[in-house]
Nucleic acid binder design. Structure first.
Length: 614
DNA sequence: TCGGAATGTCATATT
DNA sequence: CTAATATGACATTCC
C-alpha cells in the first residue's frame, strides 16, 4: 500500500485562501461547450421551461444532463498529472494553494467537511476512461431529471420574485451582477430579485462553470481502479470547514469539471451528492414557500420593506397584542385572557374598570338628582333622557372618569353610533362650548334627548321607574336590590327593571365583545404581517446560504484539484484520479486513498442519511 | 328604496 | 344555582 502522508491542511487552506475561481473555470470549463449547447436545447424543449436561459446556466444544466445520459464516455484529457511534469512537494503545493486560493470570502460559513471522498464514484466505469481528477470525488444522488427540475423550480421562483417586485431590498437580498445576461433575457432590471437569483445561477456558469456540477450527476461515475493504496495526507486543523459541511462528503462537492473534457464523460451510476441533496431540499422548500407567497399574494420584497418599516415595533406588536389594556374595563375580571392590543381606542379606557364605572354612575346619579322619585315627569324625562347618553358615553369609553367633562356635550354626538368612538375622537370633535349648548332652548334639547333615548329608557319612563336606567344597569347587585327595596314597585315595574338591567349589561357586553373581536382581528393582521416579514427574511437568508454554499463548493473543488494535481508518488509521477481520491478524515487529516475505498465509504455514508430520514 | 355599518336584543354558553 | 359575562344570530337604526 502506498501510504503517503500529505502535509496539507486542506481545511485550513480552504479557509484562509480564496481560490481564484476564474482560473478554475478556465481550467475545467472549456470542455463541453459544444455539447452543452446542444443539450441545452434539448433540455429546454423537453422541460418546457419558462423562457429558457440563454445563458451559460442553461448550458451547464444541459451539460449535466448530457453527462448523465451519456455514460461511459472518456474523460477530458485535462489531467493535472499530464501537464505537470515536475513533481511538487506537498509543501510546495500548499504554498501554491495559499497563494492562489484565498478562502476568506466565505468565512461566515463554517465548514464542516468530514470526508472528501466518502462518496464514491460509481464502480462501473473502466478506469481508463476516468481521467477526471474530480470524478472520483463526485458523488451525486440527483438524477438529471432532478437537476433539471430543480433549476426549473429555482428559475420559476426567481421569476416570481422578480414579478413581485422590486426595489431596494431586492438588491440587498441578491446582489446580481449588473450585466447579467439572464436578466436581460427576462427583460428585468439588473437588480431585480430575479436577476439576483439568476446571478446565482449564472455564477455557476460564468464565474465557474464547474459550479453547475454541484448539482450534476456526472460527477460521480468513476471507476475504481484499483490499488488499495492508502495515502494519508497530513492531518490538519481544519475544523472550520466541518461546521459548514457537516458530515457531508467532500467528494460530493466536486463536480466534473470541464476537465472531463471531452464531453460527456461519465456514465456510471450516479451517486448522490450530499450537498446536492441539501440544495435540492432547500430549493424545494423555497419553491413551496414561493408558492405560498403567490397564493397569499405575498411579496417577499415588500415584506422585507415592511420589516424595515416596522422593525422597531415588530416585537411590540406581537407582545403588545396580549396586553389587556384596551378591553380591561368591562373585562376587568377576564382581562387576562384578552388579546386586545394597544390599538388607538384602547388606552383611554384601560385604567377605568368596573369599579370606576360604578363610581361614575354614582356621579351621574348625583347630577341627575338622586331623589328622582320627587321629580315630575318632565324633569324625570329630561334627566332620564340625558342620563342615558351620559351612561352610554361612559360605557362607550369604558367609564373612564376622564371623559366626564365631555358628558354635557354629548347631545352633539348624533346617535348611538358614537359608542365606539374613541374618547380622543370625541374630545377632538368640534363640539360647541358647553355653556352655549346648555343655554340653548331646553325644549329643543329635550326633544333631541327624547329622540336619543333608548327604548328601555322610554319604557322606564312610561312605567315611571323612579330611578335612572344607568343605576339600574350599573349598580352592583347588592346596591341594586337595596334600591329596589326602597320603592314600592309593581311587578311590571320590577320586571321591566330587571329586563333593563339585563339588556343594559348585555349591551355593554356586546360592545365589549365587538371591540374585542376587532382587536383580535387587528392583532391577527399584525401577526400575519410579522410572519410575512419573517418569511421574507428567511427566504432571503436561504438564498444567501445557497449562494454561499455554492461558492464554498467551488472553492473546495478547486482546492481539491490543486492539491490532487500536485501530488506525486515515489516516482515523481502524478496519481491517477481514476485510481485515487482525497479524503478528509474526521480528525482533520487529508488522506489519499484508492478509489475503491472511497467508493465504499461513500456508499456507507449515503445509506446513513437515508436511514435517518426513514 | 337599498345596502352597509353600527348597535341593540335575545338566546345560550361560559365563568 | 345565581349573577355576570361572552358571543352568535338576528333586529333595528341610521346614513
Amino acid at each position: 500500500m502506498n501510504e503517503a502522508v500529505l502535509d496539507i491542511d486542506l481545511i485550513d487552506i480552504l479557509w484562509r485562501q480564496d481560490i481564484d475561481l476564474g482560473a478554475g473555470r478556465e481550467i475545467f470549463d472549456y470542455s463541453h461547450r459544444q455539447k452543452e449547447q446542444d443539450v441545452d436545447k434539448e433540455l429546454r424543449d423537453g422541460a418546457e421551461q419558462e423562457d429558457t436561459w440563454p445563458g451559460e446556466g442553461a448550458e451547464a444544466l444541459a451539460r449535466n444532463l448530457l453527462v448523465d445520459g451519456e455514460t461511459g464516455e472518456s474523460f477530458p484529457a485535462q489531467v493535472p498529472g499530464g501537464e505537470d511534469q515536475t513533481a511538487l512537494s506537498l509543501e510546495e503545493c500548499l504554498r501554491l494553494l495559499e497563494a492562489t486560493c484565498p478562502f476568506g470570502e466565505n468565512a461566515e460559513f463554517p465548514a464542516d467537511i468530514s470526508s472528501i471522498t466518502e462518496a464514491v464514484p460509481s464502480e462501473s466505469e473502466p478506469p481508463g476512461l476516468q481521467n477526471n481528477l474530480l470524478s472520483p470525488l463526485l458523488t451525486g444522488t440527483e438524477s438529471p431529471f432532478d437537476l433539471e427540475q430543480q433549476w426549473q423550480d429555482l428559475m420559476s421562483i426567481m421569476e416570481m420574485q422578480a414579478m413581485e417586485v422590486n426595489t431596494s431590498t431586492s438588491e440587498i437580498l441578491y446582489d446580481a451582477p449588473p450585466g447579467d445576461p439572464l436578466s436581460t433575457n427576462y427583460s428585468l432590471a439588473p437588480n431585480t430579485p430575479i436577476n439576483q437569483n439568476v446571478s446565482l445561477h449564472q455564477a455557476s456558469l460564468g464565474g465557474c462553470s464547474q459550479d453547475f456540477s454541484l448539482f450534476s450527476p456526472e460527477v460521480e461515475s468513476l471507476p475504481v481502479a484499483g490499488s488499495s493504496t492508502l495515502l494519508p495526507l497530513v492531518p490538519s486543523n481544519s475544523t472550520s470547514l466541518n461546521s459548514t459541511f457537516g458530515s457531508t462528503n467532500l467528494a460530493g462537492l466536486f463536480f466534473p469539471p470541464q476537465l472531463n473534457g471531452t464531453a460527456n464523460d461519465t456514465a456510471g451510476p450516479e451517486l448522490p451528492d450530499p450537498l446536492g441533496g441539501l440544495l435540492d431540499e432547500a430549493m424545494l422548500d423555497e419553491i413551496s414557500l414561493m408558492d405560498l407567497a403567490i397564493e397569499e399574494g405575498f411579496n417577499p420584497v415588500q415584506a422585507s420593506q415592511l420589516e424595515e418599516e416596522f422593525d422597531s415595533d415588530s416585537g411590540l406588536s406581537l407582545d403588545s397584542s396580549h396586553s389587556p389594556s384596551s378591553l380591561s374595563s368591562s373585562e376587568g375580571s377576564s382581562s387576562s385572557s384578552s388579546s386586545s392590543s394597544s390599538s388607538s381606542s384602547s388606552s383611554s379606557s384601560s385604567s377605568a374598570s368596573s369599579s370606576a364605572s360604578s363610581s361614575f354612575s354614582e356621579e351621574g346619579a348625583v347630577g341627575y338628582s338622586s331623589d328622582s322619585e320627587t321629580l315630575d315627569l318632565e324633569e324625570a324625562e329630561g334627566a332620564v333622557g340625558y342620563q342615558p347618553e351620559y351612561s352610554k358615553f361612559c360605557r362607550m369609553s369604558y367609564q373612564d372618569p376622564a371623559q366626564l367633562s365631555c358628558l354635557p356635550y354629548l347631545e352633539h354626538v348624533g346617535h348611538n353610533h358614537t359608542y365606539n368612538m374613541a374618547p380622543s375622537a370625541l374630545d377632538s370633535a368640534d363640539l360647541p362650548p358647553p355653556s352655549t349648548l346648555k343655554k340653548g332652548s331646553k325644549e329643543k334639547q329635550a326633544d333631541f334627548l327624547d329622540k336619543q333615548m333608548s327604548r328601555d329608557e322610554h319604557r322606564a319612563r312610561a312605567m315611571k321607574i323612579p330611578f335612572t336606567n344607568d343605576k339600574i344597569i350599573n349598580l352592583p347587585v347588592e346596591e341594586f336590590n337595596e334600591l329596589l327595596s326602597k320603592y314600592q314597585l309593581s311587578e311590571a315595574q320590577l320586571s321591566l327593571i330587571r329586563d333593563i338591567r339585563r339588556r343594559g349589561k348585555n349591551k355593554m357586553a356586546a360592545q365589549n365583545c365587538r371591540k374585542r373581536k376587532l382587536d383580535t382581528i387587528l392583532n391577527l393582521e399584525r401577526d400575519v404581517e410579522d410572519l410575512q416579514r419573517d418569511k421574507a427574511r428567511l427566504l432571503r437568508e436561504k438564498v444567501e446560504f445557497l449562494r454561499s454554499l455554492r461558492q464554498m463548493k467551488q472553492k473546495v473543488q478547486s482546492l481539491y484539484q490543486e492539491v490532487f494535481g500536485r501530488l506525486r508518488d515515489e516516482n515523481g509521477r502524478p496519481y491517477s484520479p481514476s485510481q485515487y481520491a482525497l479524503q478528509y478524515a474526521g480528525d482533520g487529516s487529508v488522506l489519499l486513498i484508492p478509489r475503491t475505498l472511497a467508493d465504499q465509504q461513500a456508499r456507507r455514508q449515503e445509506r446513513k442519511p437515508k436511514d435517518r430520514r426513514k
